[in-house]
Design a protein around this nucleic acid. Sequence first.
DNA 1: GTAAACATTGGTGTATAGTCCAGGGTCAAG
DNA 2: CTTGACCCTGGACTATACACCAATGTTTAC
Lengths: 122, 122
Amino acid sequence: MRIGELAEQTGMTRDAIRFYERIGLIRPERGPEGRHGYRRYDASTIRRLGLIRQAKALGFSLGEIQELLDAWANHSFSPEQKRAILADKIGVVDRKILELQELSSELKLALAGIRDECQQTG
Amino acid sequence: MRIGELAEQTGMTRDAIRFYERIGLIRPERGPEGRHGYRRYDASTIRRLGLIRQAKALGFSLGEIQELLDAWANHSFSPEQKRAILADKIGVVDRKILELQELSSELKLALAGIRDECQQTG
DNA sequence: GTAAACATTGGTGTATAGTCCAGGGTCAAG
DNA sequence: CTTGACCCTGGACTATACACCAATGTTTAC
């Protein structure tokens, strides 16, 4: 798959995908079939970009995501380092879940309050 | 309370607090006691800034937070508009919770995988 | 009344996360 | 062998979310 199709599959722009490559989040092959040098992606990259998108929306920076993906895959870290990084991120994620649950409760209370306001006349 | 104490109480910088004011997230009084014009904050601002910090960490932009706070308080929106905005944000938050739970599960699986790797010799 | 410790505005600078070209190369079809 | 659709690099530009001044004013304590 070349960059255009990947962009279509993921809903990201070509520029964003190239940007993610520049900062090391993805590592495509280069033009295995001709002499062109085009980037070639396999299907796993779609999933990887999906995860990046999700993590971003959940408040993780690309730097944090990179750390996470490095720990997830098998490059450059010892198992112990990977374990530590993953455990750390799990803690962050679980704390975010709690915070979001509190936030959701508060918002629902606020919504109920507005309903009451609307019921003033009956 | 003046800006310095508020900064201390919230852990934010004076600059960040002034920035939040510039974009409309907070609206301090101005110098009610002398002729100075200093910003004066009451205790509720601490909570408000805490909420801003939390929402930011959870992936909301300051723009979204502003919308939310406007709907939360009683300014400038009809009850119906506020209800709609709140309901929308609740949906966003609840979806984020689900995504984070999935992410947490995946991370825990990955962590378990690493544990297995470490157990290769015994 | 003056010095320290606070505050003000206004402007510039920074990091992050991209977007948007320009100028060019590549590929498949006709 | 040209046309259109795709790709490349490099650089400039943008929005968000602040940080960091400088020059100046105010408050508090002595």
